[in-house]
Design a protein around this nucleic acid. Structure first.
Lengths: 210, 210
DNA sequence: TAGATTGTTAATCGATTAACAATC
DNA sequence: TAGATTGTTAATCGATTAACAATC
């Protein structure tokens, strides 16, 4: 089991496998083969088997993987079975939209694990106002005592110039997972996990292929 | 030059190199070494040299890479020197935010290459209304004659269930680059380029490491 | 049993890093 | 020139794919 050092790329595919399993109409099929999963995920069937085998033996020879049981395993492995509090830093256009989108997802599906639990901004005009029932706070006012160490993931939606400072601060308060929408490479200690979601960067990648 | 088959991962790094070069205060330094660029991009210096060498010989031994000239080369290679029209499919919470964000970027920096040029939705109540001066249209009303083949990139911000159909339609109208925010794997012909930007997927990846 | 598919080992492929001659 | 850094080849590393015995 998860004997450490699972490559990042495997985790990314595991999330895809879980999504695929969840798209199967309940009760429609008891087993799914590695080749069928591979087809949906656009990866080789050996890849699927090897990825899953990193975490345990979930399949049955000659039959495939039990949909229900495998789904539960992946949910457990990927921590999709518990609420995960998320703080949003920078409540501008994009930050607001993400808050609305994520609270909406959660509202329509109580099993959706990500819960927006705090909003931060540096604009005095915004402090104290509400988005989706959450009050926007000044980052500086966030202290460890206020039972906030439970926040696990930061959405960084501040301007590029402020991103590093905000991330440093969030890290010091115990956050280890960062989804960074700002066009900056965040420099954080090795136990922090940063995923880049900078739209301009992605558009520029696409532009190369035109 | 670009003798085809440059790995995707190299293009991603090239975009990062360009961002780094642009962050250098103009006139502050004439040359930059591969190790300095590597430090900022968090990659090995040999990697930087090898990546750049795929496109030409831009450096000077013993000195480094000329900041100004290299910037211009990367701008050219990555097509950041021309306007690139983008259409947004699905003008909900997230779609609206992206339209506002991108038009704002463009307004404050006329050299920002991405121009939102069309908005589509399927909700009759939205058709004809305006976002940032652009009128929301019904996807079905989009035909090739209307001088729209120029649109190069699609932002897919429709719900998961509609994403594939919308992408198929966009592809048939000539769009080859897709930035997909819907939680679905798009299946498109091999000459299409799809980048995934599904926030839930990314959050779930981060959750594994908690 | 016969057919199918897993789990895993071996082979291949590709990407990263080290090393160094060329040269500014 | 002496020192530094490129461009590139060779070595390493890691990830993907093929192949197949085990077995349901």
């Amino acid at each position: 089991m998860a004997s450490n050092k699972i490559p990042d790329v495997v985790i990314r595919r595991m999330v895809t496998y879980l999504r695929i399993l969840r798209e199967i109409p309940p009760g429609s099929k008891e087993y799914i083969s590695s080749s069928e999963m591979g087809e949906w995920a656009a990866v080789n069937s050996a890849q699927v088997r090897k990825d899953l085998a990193l975490f345990g033996e979930f399949g049955k020879q000659g039959v495939g993987y039990p949909v229900q049981a495998l789904t539960e395993e992946l949910v457990r492995i990927l921590r999709a079975d518990r609420d995960i509090p998320v703080a949003v830093f920078g409540i501008g256009e994009l930050g607001t939209a993400l808050v609305r989108y994520l609270t909406g997802r959660r509202r329509s599906d109580p099993k959706y694990p990500f819960v927006i639990s705090a909003l931060f901004d540096s604009d005095p005009a915004k402090i104290g106002t509400n988005v989706e029932g959450l009050t926007i706070e000044l980052l500086e006012s966030w202290s460890e005592d206020k039972n906030r160490k439970e926040v696990k993931i930061a959405l960084i939606t501040v301007p590029a110039g402020a991103a590093q400072e905000v991330a440093d601060r969030a890290y010091r308060l115990g956050i280890k997972g960062f989804l960074n929408f700002a066009p900056t490479k965040l420099r954080l200690p090795p136990d922090a996990r940063v995923l880049n979601a900078d739209v301009t960067h992605q558009l520029q990648e696409l532009a190369y292929y035109l």
